[in-house]
Structure formats: C-alpha cells, structure tokens
C-alpha cells in the first residue's frame, strides 16, 4: 500500500508505545499515534489527557484535550489539580507524548513565542501542561513535521526543558526522569546520543535520503553509523489509521464542523 510521510510519522510514533505504558497525550499528531497504538499492538495502554480523563479510549480523535468523547470513554475523570498533582507529579506516567512548534537538537521545546518574549513576532499558545509533562513523565516522545523554521539551532524560548545544553544537564538540574528519548518526524526516527544527548537519526523512512533530512532541519544533522530504514507501515497499521481519520472526519462533520 502507498502511504504519505504523515502516515509514516504517526505509525512510526505509535510503534514506540507499549501495552504497559501509561501515556500522557498531547493533542494533534501525538493523539493520533497513541490511539493507533491502542487499536493495534497495545490494546492495554492507558491514555491520559490533561483534562483529567484517565484510561480513555476514544472512537474518534478529539479536537481538543477536553472533548466529551474522552470523558465518556474514560475509566474515570478526575479534576485538573488532581491530574497534575497525583497522577503527573506523583510519577505515575511512563511516557509523555508532545508536539513542538520549535525544537532544538537537545529536545528543548518552544511553544510560547517566536521572537523576543516582550515583543514577539508570533505569540504562540504557551506551555499548558507541557513544562511539567516534560519533567515528570518517565520519558518523553516528540513528534513533529520537519522544517527549517521548526527544527532550529537555537529556540527563541525554552517552554519545556529537554536535555538543555546536552550531556548531564538534566541531572544537574535535579531531574531524575529520562527526558526526550525519541523524536519521530515525517522523514526519520531519531534517538538522543547516549552521551551528548543530541538527537541522532537512527532510521530513515522508506524513500527518504540523508539530504532530505538535512535540507529540512536547521541544525547540522548527525546520522547513526548503523543507519537503518524504518519498516514501512503494515496493512493493519495503515488501515487502522485511515479508519480512525475517516471516523473522526465523519463524526465532526455530523456535529457541524466543516
């Protein structure tokens, strides 16, 4: 089956999640990946959205983190303070899945401003749950489309801390969690170097060249010595994702969303 780069990105991200994970889900691409995992190889995964919905199993993808669909299909729904205190800060979440407007090579994320904070060129939504998701979850997966504007040498604002300037930066800050351990883009799968913590390309998606990855990334890309090719989406993975999108589109259209 033919597939798009976005489909490959979502499916490659879904594969990184396991049946035993308790996953804090960001909206957008992370939400699609988490639900594909749940509907394929990880039926037992616990998905948590910051609106307080624990163990949710949406039939269709939510448009926001607080859609009624999440509450209706959840095991239980707790208040937002309880969500952030007992469940996130309490260390009960194994994986946080985030998107990024701007990202650097050490997995630091900016979702606050483009340009200076007091006079921004673009005022972005801000941190929301991400600053503490990034520090309190066992590890962090990041997924985003590659672009030279999005993947930059220096981000304008550190909303959510990744590996800082690399190396032992997290430990020096007193962080005991792993931080970003995976970056899945529309072109490649990246993992941090064990020592420097710089994101390094571990596998290229089918049909992608090293030059394509470098041309759409604002920092000088490092490639692993044993660079692999990402296995293409299986029929089941692709069908599951497409069915999910089709159900989502139909449901939101029926509810009046154009």
């Amino acid at each position: 089956m033919d597939f798009t780069p976005d489909e490959m990105m979502t499916i490659a991200a879904a594969r990184a999640l396991s049946n035993d994970d308790v996953c804090f889900v960001g909206i957008g691409a992370p939400s699609a990946a988490c639900n594909v995992a749940r509907l394929t190889h990880a039926p037992g995964i616990t998905l948590i959205y910051e609106s307080g919905t624990l163990g949710t199993a949406p039939e269709v993808l939510p448009l926001s983190i607080g859609d009624g669909e999440l509450c209706e299909t959840a095991l239980t729904t707790v208040s937002v303070p309880e969500m952030f205190r007992y469940w996130l800060q309490g260390g009960r979440i194994s994986v946080g899945f985030l998107g990024a407007a701007q990202l650097d090579r050490f997995g630091n994320i900016n979702t606050t401003v483009i340009g200076p904070y007091t006079h921004p060129k673009v005022r972005l939504p801000g941190g929301g749950g991400a600053p503490e998701i990034a520090s309190s979850c066992g590890e962090i997966f990041i997924t985003m489309r590659q672009s030279v504007r999005g993947m930059v040498e220096t981000i304008d604002f550190v909303t959510s801390f990744g590996h800082g300037t690399g190396g032992e930066a997290r430990r020096k800050l007193g962080l005991t969690t792993k931080g970003p351990t995976l970056l899945v883009t529309d072109l490649a799968v990246w993992r941090p170097d064990p020592d420097s913590k710089e994101f390094t390309v571990r596998s290229l998606h089918p049909g992608v060249s090293r030059a394509m990855v470098q041309d759409s990334c604002g920092w000088r890309v490092r490639f692993a010595g044993d660079l692999e090719e990402t296995p293409p989406p299986s029929h089941l993975e692709l069908q599951t994702l497409r069915d999910l999108y089709a159900r989502t589109k139909a449901a939101h259209r029926a509810q009046g969303a154009a």
């Binding site: 800060q89 801390f161 800082g164």
Partner: peptide, 20 residues
Amino acid sequence: EAGAAGLPCAIFRGYLGSDL
C-alpha cells in the same frame, strides 16, 4: 487549590529548566 485551601502559596515540582 492553594486559594481554595486558604494557603498563601502553592508548592509543587515544576518549571525545571523552563524560561517561564
């Protein structure tokens, strides 16, 4: 929550490494 509990401030593990 601190406001509801009548406390002057809230204490939590947060903002580590964030420019906020």
